[in-house]
Design a protein around this nucleic acid. Structure first.
Lengths: 191, 191
DNA sequence: GAAGTAAAACAACACGCTGTTCAATAACAC
DNA sequence: GTGTTATTGAACAGCGTGTTGTTTTACTTC
């Protein structure tokens, strides 16, 4: 069902490459279909035979990123390793999709997508935490998740802005450390 | 220098009210000047005699929010109270500007503005933390700030989404608790 | 209250982007 | 090679934009 014409695949690839390039320097709302097609060297009419509009194109990129994440995380979650290893796996996968991450999670990214992503992960995270912190109220758990999930995104953006030069494992360790110990993370850790 | 004609002030007020109302249901990029003026009952040409475009209008709203924040925080910072009191003051001020907060910090908000805001607060926060955690590296401090500043925004968005029903003091306490103790926040606190 | 001033309304304009259609051309699969 | 399918190029109406005049309305000052 994924069999596409050679030409169609090349066209889509050109469009996506030009799109991600443009998104590195300007938000989606100030990109026109016309300039995207000019950058990609594609006829404007051809674009409309593949996507409804620019938002449709972005949505498809985002969905593929989610699929990549799920593919990368599935084996990790089956083997039930330490939380740190899962976090490491996430950041490694994000690094391997750096170009798309820059687009959807970066400065000109899609806020709505990030929210959808965190909302999807919310259930499993809360399930895990609720077990260990039965004394905490539902509201406290909600606030905690809201804080740390947004915090991880903020850390990820910081990582993206420095070109992902720091190893994924170190970012994962920082995320784990801050989540577990708050400001205490600064007391003993070294970088 | 702030003296404006009565008519001009009414026009600006109508435009801003209509603008914030529209921003509650759709992002700025899918709002046209035409529909904004129709919603405000203002001639389209009049809009252009006040603002360059919709982004100019949004920028002015954001700047006024910053000024409000600074006015509210100045006395707090002079008296040098506890960090918790400063945090409480911030959340109280945000609650008092709920309509603008919903617009610029909410789901359809201005990502760039949030980044500018946190970048501005970065220096003073880091200065405070560096004093107490001289052992931590610059990079660790950067990561910590990236995490907790984004985390506070995430918590704020959660607060906005529930209509700011929870008292500002409780939200501030949660922010402080998570920043200071991480997941340990869930162990003893009650809600 | 009247004169002068400033803002808003109204209409019209060229411009650019949009989304679609059509015939013509090119590249693909069998 | 033949039929199929994608891409091209051109043309089209539609819509929002930003600007420019002109007229009308509302305010300020005396």
């Amino acid at each position: 069902m994924e069999k596409l014409d050679h030409r169609a695949r090349v066209t889509r690839m050109l469009l996506r490459r030009a799109f991600t390039d443009l998104l590195k320097e300007k938000p989606i709302e100030s990109i026109s279909v016309k300039e995207l097609c000019a950058a990609a060297g594609i006829n404007r009419g051809t674009f409309y035979s593949h996507y409804q509009d620019l938002y449709d194109l972005r949505r498809q990129l985002e969905e593929e990123l989610v699929e990549d994440l799920q593919r990368a995380l599935a084996p990790l979650l089956e083997n039930a390793p330490s939380p740190l290893e899962v976090t490491e796996g996430i950041f490694r996968c994000l690094r391997d999709n750096a170009d798309v991450c820059t687009v959807v999670l970066g400065p000109c990214g899609d806020r709505g997508f990030v929210r959808r992503l965190l909302e999807g992960a919310r259930a499993s995270y809360l399930a895990g935490y609720t077990r260990y912190f039965a004394g905490a109220s539902q509201r406290q758990l909600d606030y905690f998740y809201a804080f740390v999930s947004a915090g991880c995104i903020g850390l990820l953006e910081r990582w993206l802005s420095e070109g992902m030069t720091t190893p994924a494992e170190e970012i994962a360790a920082a995320a784990e450390g801050i989540m577990l110990r708050g400001v205490g993370f600064l007391e003993t850790e070294k970088g």
